[in-house]
Amino acid sequence: MSDTTIGSLRETTGNPFSVQRRIPGKAWRLWVGLDWPMRLVLVLAALLVFAALTAPLISPYEPNAQSLLLRLKPPIGFMEARAGHLFGTDELGRDVLTRCLYGLQMTLLIAVSGAIIGMLIGGTLGLLAGAAGGTADALVMALVDIQIAVPFTLVALLAVAVFGSDMHVLIVVLGIAYWEQYARIIRGEVLKLREMPFIEASRAAGASPLRIAFRHIVPNVISPLVVMFTLNFSNIVLLESSLSFLGLGLSPPTATLGSMVGIGRDYMHTAPWIVAAPALLILLITLVVQMLGDRLRDRMDVRLRDR
């Protein structure tokens, strides 16, 4: 083979390492194209995920290590602060910073798992209702109406009373919290897609309903599903915190951000840092996820993107 042929093949196929060199450049261009609030949000999201994943490595103490001689010590900067306890100590002398890191890890784990379960349940039922129609549609929408009508706190109380306050129970309870929102949105999208010309063309070509659903409908409902996931994730975090605050979360001494706020409410007048640190983390998580969800919606919504 001549050198000219080899050169032409290289130009046609390209250097296999050129794609790897272009990836950092493309990521940098995307980063430069973002405004500074979005950059700040991405940095905060990365820091939160990093802190949750590396909690056992970066925590200065054990999460349940008690020292009654050091109970209710204020954070660094106060006169009675104790060296080594940046965020102070709680009513049992446990390090608040360590508890916050482990609580962040547990809260994110429960919230992500619950949000994924809700997305899978709601997305599947919404796809079934919109694609099948008829009795299936009526049954799914009846379940949606029941979910909306019944107060979710009563459902959580019943689940905890019957099955106990185990982590798996809490994840399932959170998973069925907002599935009806996914079902309604996906059902509406499927009903619109069913009347599109390319669906009619596939049906006229003899494609089976299952092939139409997975080949044409599912790829077109992934975008609203992902956006709905990001917007509902913060609601899951707040719901988990509320249930833990009411004593329906994980049993002590396991730390979640909501349980830390719930336990610390009795010491708000004498030791407000016990509540302030986990409450600020909850606020930061919800703010970051909401801003990411809004930006993702703007990027995926063609009408908003064109504006």
Rank of each mutant, 00 (worst) to 15 (best):
M1W: 06
T5A: 11
T5D: 05
S8V: 09
L9C: 08
R10E: 15
R10I: 11
F17W: 07
R22M: 13
I23A: 12
I23C: 06
P24H: 02
K26Y: 15
K26D: 15
A27E: 07
W28G: 04
D35Q: 15
D35G: 13
P37K: 15
L40P: 09
V41I: 13
V41H: 01
V43E: 07
A46P: 04
L48M: 14
V49Y: 00
F50Q: 00
A51V: 10
L57K: 03
Y61C: 04
Y61S: 05
N64K: 02
S67F: 00
L69E: 02
L70I: 06
L70K: 10
R71T: 02
K73W: 00
G77I: 05
E80L: 15
G84R: 05
L86E: 13
R94I: 13
T98G: 10
T98R: 09
R99V: 08
Q105L: 04
T107I: 06
L108F: 07
L108I: 09
V112A: 07
V112Y: 08
G114R: 03
G122V: 15
A129V: 06
G134E: 06
T135R: 09
Q147I: 13
A149E: 11
A149N: 09
P151Q: 05
A159D: 00
A159F: 02
G164E: 01
V169P: 15
G175F: 07
I176S: 05
A183V: 08
I186P: 01
P197Q: 04
F198A: 10
A201E: 12
S202I: 01
A204H: 00
A204K: 04
A205I: 06
G206A: 10
S208T: 08
P209H: 06
V218D: 14
V221L: 06
I222N: 06
V226L: 12
N232F: 07
N235T: 03
I236Q: 00
V237M: 11
E240Y: 13
S241R: 04
S244I: 13
G247D: 04
L250S: 03
S251I: 14
T254I: 13
G258F: 12
I263S: 00
G264L: 10
D266S: 11
A276S: 14
A276I: 06
A277T: 08
L281F: 13
L283V: 14
V288H: 01
D298H: 14
L304P: 01
R307C: 00
